[in-house]
Amino acid sequence: MYSIIKSLHSNLALVLLFVLFAAVIYILIGFMGNKEFTASSKRIALAGLIAAHLQLVVGLIIYFISPLGIENFSKASMGNSMSRLYMLEHPLMMLLAIVSITIGYSKSKRAATDKQKYKLLSIFYVIGLVFILSRIPWHVWM
């Protein structure tokens, strides 16, 4: 069961990165080009939000069933960089990234102008993407 969920988490991470990169590029083009915020703009931003939340749900399941997650939480584990990455740094940064993406999407819905919508989405989605990229355990993927 654990290996299936872990594989799902890894594959969804690739999907999330692809969707988030595409959304950020689309949003930045819209922002810099002073384009109209259309229904497709909203759907692309929503796709990034949904992918992030889906990954969060699977990640939380792994965190609670994995021997590297909450079971590993101890003072001794804090001294080991790999243990600290899996039990604290990765989950915390991913949570902050998803909060950032969620705030950006929510604020953009209430923005008055198209330029403001693109600006808010670009700021918060880029922050979320940077947080995600900063704490992906690349050594496991490579």
Results as ranks from 00 to 15, higher is better:
residue 60 L to W: 15
residue 60 L to M: 15
residue 60 L to R: 09
residue 61 I to Q: 00
residue 62 I to C: 14
residue 63 Y to W: 05
residue 64 F to V: 06
residue 64 F to G: 10
residue 65 I to S: 05
residue 66 S to A: 12
residue 69 G to S: 10
residue 70 I to G: 06
residue 71 E to W: 03
residue 72 N to V: 05
residue 72 N to T: 10
residue 74 S to M: 06
residue 74 S to L: 01
residue 76 A to P: 00
residue 78 M to G: 03
residue 78 M to N: 08
residue 79 G to V: 00
residue 80 N to S: 08
residue 80 N to C: 04
residue 82 M to F: 15
residue 83 S to Y: 10
residue 83 S to R: 03
residue 84 R to D: 02
residue 87 M to K: 03
residue 88 L to G: 02
residue 88 L to Y: 06
residue 88 L to K: 04
residue 88 L to R: 10
residue 89 E to M: 04
residue 90 H to Y: 08
residue 91 P to C: 09
residue 91 P to N: 07
residue 93 M to W: 13
residue 93 M to A: 11
residue 95 L to A: 14
residue 95 L to T: 14
residue 99 V to C: 03
residue 99 V to P: 04
residue 99 V to A: 09
residue 100 S to G: 10
residue 100 S to E: 05
residue 100 S to M: 07
residue 102 T to Y: 04
residue 102 T to A: 09
residue 103 I to A: 11
residue 103 I to L: 11
residue 104 G to I: 06
residue 105 Y to I: 06
residue 106 S to G: 11
residue 106 S to W: 07
residue 108 S to I: 03
residue 109 K to C: 11
residue 109 K to E: 13
residue 110 R to G: 00
residue 110 R to N: 15
residue 111 A to N: 12
residue 112 A to W: 00
residue 113 T to R: 03
residue 114 D to T: 02
residue 115 K to V: 08
residue 115 K to C: 03
residue 115 K to G: 00
residue 118 Y to K: 09
residue 118 Y to I: 06
residue 118 Y to G: 06
residue 119 K to Q: 12
residue 119 K to R: 14
